[in-house]
């Protein structure tokens, strides 16, 4: 098995994760682990999950993303989910998942602005 990984980029106090590929289950779980480690080593206080490139999000992946948000919180960081596509948002709601408690934003810029507000 290849060592596929989703890149985590540190910008100032934040970690930016851009998910562009179709994320399969293991990749999502690997991301959660990697992100946990990076939060510990960098002491970052914010996480931006950019999912504008994802055209589907099923309940498993959505739960992993929600899990990342809760985990980050325990490690002292706020998470903002940015760029969810309209069709993905509608489908997720129809599935009964509204991801209460996860911060959201339209794009990376605004997500960053929201993080700064949350981190004051």
């Amino acid at each position: 098995m290849t060592l596929e990984r989703i890149a985590i980029v540190k910008i100032e106090e934040c970690l930016l994760v851009t998910i562009q590929v179709d994320m399969h289950d293991r990749l999502a779980l690997t991301l959660r682990e990697d992100l946990g480690e990076r939060l510990l080593t960098t002491q970052a206080r914010g996480v931006l999950l950019d999912i504008s490139g994802l055209d589907t999000l099923d309940t498993f992946i959505a739960r992993v993303l929600a899990g990342i948000s809760s985990m980050a919180k325990l490690l002292g960081a706020e998470t903002v989910l940015v760029g969810m596509q309209p069709a993905v948002a509608m489908t997720l709601v129809e599935l009964g998942l509204t991801l209460e408690g996860v911060h959201t934003s339209l794009d990376v810029d605004r997500g960053m602005a929201l993080l700064k507000k949350l981190l004051v």
Binding site: D55, T59, L95
Partner: peptide, 28 residues
């Protein structure tokens, strides 16, 4: 499976929303 459903949905000209729904249901 997700990719295959998505490809065929695009070929059949399903709307983005219909495609997303079917791909998501298939994934589940």
């Amino acid at each position: 499976v997700r990719r295959a459903v998505s490809t065929h949905a695009e070929r059949l000209n399903l709307s983005v929303l219909s495609r997303t729904r079917l791909v998501t249901a298939s994934s589940e």
